[in-house]
Design a protein around this nucleic acid. Structure first.
Lengths: 258, 258
DNA sequence: AAGTGGTCTAGACCACCAT
DNA sequence: TGGTGGTCTAGACCACTTA
């Protein structure tokens, strides 16, 4: 059953998750077997089980209580499909929309070259550098919900030519896929900033709402190795259709010892 | 040097953090000593050091790269004070504002009893239950930036009377403080939802902006032990003055083994 | 090849909670 | 008091990056 080159903790995580998805613990009021029992059942050390549970707790899948036990998170009962999204690495917008039960599609508005200009700062390149700009609209059941623009420094696609990339571009893929496919780069860290803004005329037209309507925006900067910025993304979401949820775990908050 | 009843990993975390704040690693281009060296230096096992580093990475303070080393996060160079906010457990709005360099103050708009009504669902109580509603406005340098309303089930303050609580209420404290002081309860988990909305007349007046202006809203539900809801909070932020930042660490994303 | 962080073990003891 | 999760150790080996 055990496979090579896959960390044991990931395999254990998958096993536990499968059991949860199968509703294995529903009859037990969501209580998951103790760490000792799980380590016996899977034939691994308790440390390994604990690491898997830690990740599941971070992902909001389970809740652990000192001296009591480990439970399936109650938010999952209200939002059952949520488990799968949290598990995807770098979930893309298509998956997110389908996750919510909508039929997802993506339209390429524009893919072209542009000057770095004000993005030279965040991308840590020269202002006169060329960028590839990818502008897309994502719809759920034919209703536009996300407007997304991503910028990648043009020299990252070397040795490909921009024309080659433009011609072969696949609209549904995420920036991460793009960077891996054309630039052989991986995103190691990412800074996200989230805010709200009123729709201007252009965004309103593209998102099918009225100018002045509130939008959520998310600005992302992805970093590769050596902490070099790889892409800059600016995404706008219809605020009447989208909100973000997360579980916080005070027990995991950093805490200065006194 | 070692103290009782404080986990070693927390003490190590504090030590490392102090070194970072003192600019100890600036000359090394932000590179932090290896885990082996740290474990030797602090006289603890490498596991303990790793746990401290894991929390620091989660908090966005450091970045670890397999086979390379551990580095102080570059976002801290641009945002040096941010370390302290991340370290506070349950940071309150006063701290957040001061963190950003503003002079913080808080005005109590209203503290009173109200019917649970539509909040009965999220708080898992009866619709005719009494709630304590606390409405406040937080300002930075005399400019209103946050409007906050929190609801706590009235029977949680037992044996205190609402009047006692109203009279003694300290406006600057967070809901967490309130729950600990008056209800002897601790928040174990919290669900946060974030979205955007246009200001209505009332919010606009209180936040000193125009009706229709975009606002960020954050809805919070805090859970105590037995996963019982303890409070419901609804906060609105001036979107022209506030945005939220976070670091994501793909290496920590949950990942199904294939 | 050397050095780093990542995974894993087996076992110990502690802190917390329910009963 | 018994069972749970939380902390901690000492040591082993692996996987990754750089030189």
């Amino acid at each position: 059953m055990l496979r090579k080159n896959v960390p044991l903790t990931s395999q254990v995580l998958t096993e536990i998750l499968t059991l949860i998805e199968q509703g294995e613990f529903v009859s037990d009021n969501g209580e998951i077997p103790s760490e000792d029992e799980l380590s016996r059942r899977f034939g691994v050390s308790r440390t390994t089980v604990r690491e898997a549970l830690a990740k599941l707790e971070l992902g909001g899948v389970v809740i652990r209580r000192h001296g009591v036990g480990t439970y399936v998170s109650p938010v999952l009962t209200a939002h059952p499909g949520a488990v799968r999204v949290w598990l995807d690495d770098a979930p893309n917008f298509m998956d997110l929309i389908q996750q919510e039960g909508g039929q997802a599609d993506c339209t390429l508005v524009d893919i072209s070259l542009t000057q770095a200009g004000p993005l030279a700062g965040p991308l840590e390149i020269q202002p006169d550098s060329q960028l590839i700009a990818i502008e897309r609209i994502f719809r759920s059941d034919l209703v536009p919900v996300i407007h997304s623009t991503n910028y990648v420094a043009c020299d990252l696609i070397d040795p490909h030519s921009p024309e080659t990339v433009f011609a072969a571009y696949n609209c549904g893929e995420s920036v991460y896929d793009f960077l891996e496919q054309w630039c052989q780069r991986k995103v190691f860290n990412q800074k996200s900033e989230i805010g709200a803004i009123a729709a201007n005329d252009r965004l309103a037209a593209q998102l099918g709402c009225s100018p002045g309507d509130p939008l959520l925006w998310v600005e992302e900067i992805g970093y590769g190795k050596k902490l070099r910025p790889l892409f800059y993304g600016l995404n706008h979401f219809r605020a009447d259709l989208v909100s973000f949820t997360e579980m916080r775990h005070p027990s995991m908050w950093l805490r200065k010892s006194r």
